[in-house]
């Protein structure tokens, strides 16, 4: 379980995050959406422990893996990038081959990661995470640079990883379709505050902000899903 209480964060005089309470459970996929500058990435950074909140309490029960919006491809081959990221274990090579195939990176395994395209880099960054076990997977727009095929590969890999590990997934996205496809629960942030927090059905029935209305208007509604 990850829980936060009364978290605030300011950049200069501007309050970018002000959340009274939120919790995330293992086995649940939570998608965080909201307009640019609404505090999504800041919230994820605080949850992942790469940024300290100005005030409030954060409790993290379990191991967290985090994919930042800009993840650095290491200056080595794609294969070495993955092997370097695997925590000490005996089946390194097997895990590496498996994830390379799953994210369609096998053809680039001998290439220097710095020469990959944006979408390929994103797949590599996710691959480095998914070769390790964790209790919570935190992903900041994991497929923002991916094409349709890359997007499918990323979503498929995340779903499969979650099913296999039973971990919790917390991710941000600007894609209404991705939110609908992956989320058990959706949190909408607006000016650093939680504007919505519920299943897509609950949000559809009673949207609180104009931005939410725009966001959900792009969902093709299938209540039997």
């Amino acid at each position: 379980m990850i829980e936060i209480y009364d978290i605030t964060k300011k950049y200069g005089n501007r309050t970018v995050l002000d959340i009274s309470s939120l919790s995330f459970s293992k086995g649940e996929t939570v998608v965080i959406a909201g307009p640019n500058g609404s505090g999504k990435s800041t919230l994820l950074k605080i949850l992942a422990g790469t940024l300290k909140a100005d005030s409030g309490k954060l409790t993290v029960g379990g191991k967290v893996l985090y994919l930042p919006q800009q993840s650095l491809p290491f200056g080595m081959t794609v294969r070495k990038n993955i092997l370097f990221s695997i925590e000490s274990r005996t089946d390194k090579e097997v895990r590496c081959d498996e994830i390379l195939r799953k994210l369609n990176l096998k053809a680039f395994e001998g290439k220097n990661a710095k020469t990959l395209s944006g979408g390929e880099c994103q797949r590599l960054a996710l691959a480095r995470l998914l070769v390790n076990d964790c209790d919570f997977l935190i992903l900041d727009e994991p497929s923002s640079a991916a094409d349709i095929e890359g997007n499918e590969l990323i979503e498929g890999a995340v779903k499969e990883y979650k099913e296999k590990n039973g971990c919790g997934v917390i991710m941000t996205t600007h894609s209404p379709r991705q939110a609908l496809d992956l989320a058990d629960r959706i949190i909408m942030l607006c000016d650093g505050r939680v504007a919505e927090n519920g299943s897509f059905r609950e949000i559809l029935q009673n949207p609180q902000t104009e931005w939410t209305k725009k966001f959900i208007s792009q969902w093709s509604i299938d209540f039997n899903r």
């Binding site: 893996l65 985090y66 930042p68 800009q70 993840s71 370097f84 995470l129």
Partner: peptide, 22 residues
Amino acid sequence: IIRETAVGLNFTAAKRLRLLLN
């Protein structure tokens, strides 16, 4: 950016330094 990537991957301090130098 190196720190954020490395912390996200749960690297130890020694591994983070190795990455930074590399």
